[in-house]
């Protein structure tokens, strides 16, 4: 990315140095200021306020700080086994959604990267879940998972099975049902990112390898996979971050239940803040989720680095 800003080209009118800023800089500031003001008001200020709330008890009458309690809210997440389970579930949910979309997305990208009849149609269909409103996604997966008249049970009965499972009625099943629903909606972005990556791979080496007698599978294992690794990692991280922030699908399908079997940290923030009006703990949970997300990203990057070192790969 080369920035070529031709500073010498602009001839400056005399006396334009009054404020001490280069006039081009002043113009740039003017252009960027409205957007930055919005960002500061809606991201920076709230993030700071939530940080303060996270070490305090919030007075509900004034929405001000009642008293500071130190890291008590954070420590609760570390000590309380229920909250530990919620945190673990968050990572599991995010990780599995990310992994599913990566594997599915890669298969779809491989498919779409070669010509076949109907590819144009499939490209459109594969993109659609991305634009499905999450609530609609909730409704349609609700119909799939419904116990009595649901499509999944109907399908199982058609295959000769019992087909009586209440999919959203048991915590572990419900969690995985949500993971599948969320992965369905998140898959298009993975597929498109990976497809774009596949298209950047040089054709020449494939032809050379094919001439050398390397079969489809060998070319895939020895060339496509290693070449795609640098693209897979950002996709994995992107999807993990997105999935750990999943809210709508949980709200619409299970409301965090049964019990708290599908409650993730992000959903807990909502419950604490807007169902129980515990703004202090909610803020601490929100920051815990952020820290946890960063930690997991760190692990991803570290693993990738270790893998790179072991295979003797030189850094790109």
């Amino acid at each position: 990315m080369i920035q070529s800003v031709p500073q010498q080209v602009a001839s400056l009118p005399a006396g334009s140095h009054r404020v001490g800023l280069h006039p081009r800089t002043r113009f740039a500031l003017l252009l960027v200021a409205p957007a930055l003001l919005v960002v500061a008001a809606v991201y920076l200020y709230p993030a700071a306020l939530t940080l303060v709330f996270s070490v305090a008890e919030v007075d509900l009458a004034t929405f001000g700080v009642d008293r500071f309690v130190g890291f008590q809210h954070y420590l609760r997440v570390l000590r309380d086994p229920t909250l530990q389970a919620v945190a673990g579930r968050s990572v599991y949910f995010g990780g599995l959604v990310a992994l599913l979309t990566l594997v599915l997305g890669f298969a779809i990208a491989l498919l779409l990267s070669r010509p076949f009849i109907g590819r144009g149609l499939l490209r459109v269909v594969v993109l659609l879940p991305w634009a499905v409103p999450p609530v609609v996604s909730g409704v349609l997966w609700g119909q799939i998972y419904a116990a009595e008249y649901g499509f999944l049970n109907g399908f199982l009965r058609a295959l000769g099975g019992e087909g009586r499972t209440i999919w959203l009625g048991e915590p572990t099943q419900a969690l995985h049902a949500l993971i599948i629903a969320e992965a369905w909606r998140a898959m298009p972005l993975s597929a498109l990112f990976l497809l774009a990556g596949l298209q950047t791979l040089p054709d020449g080496i494939y032809e050379a390898a094919a001439l050398d007698g390397a079969g489809v599978l060998r070319r895939f294992r020895d060339m496509t996979l290693p070449l795609m690794m640098p693209i897979a990692l950002p996709v994995l991280i992107f999807q993990f971050v997105a999935a750990s922030k999943a809210f709508d699908v949980i709200y619409v399908l299970t409301r965090g239940g049964p019990g708290n079997g599908t409650t993730t940290l992000n959903y807990l923030v909502y419950q604490q803040a807007f169902e129980r009006l515990e703004f202090g703990p909610a803020s601490a949970t929100a920051y815990t989720l952020t820290i946890l997300t960063l930690l997991v990203i760190g692990v991803f990057v570290f693993l990738r680095w270790r893998l790179g070192v072991r295979s003797g790969e030189t850094a790109a």
């Binding site: 800089t25 960027v32 809606v42 939530t50 809210f247 923030v269 803040a273 803020s283 952020t290 990203i297």
Partner: peptide
């Protein structure tokens, strides 16, 4: 354009994505 802290601003705009939306919504 030449803008002081340009790289930082761009990085910050991407970094907000790492935070859960509810953190800002509250």
């Amino acid at each position: 354009l030449r803008l002081p802290g340009r790289r930082f601003i761009i990085a910050a705009l991407i970094a907000v994505y790492l935070f859960p939306t509810l953190l800002f919504v509250l």
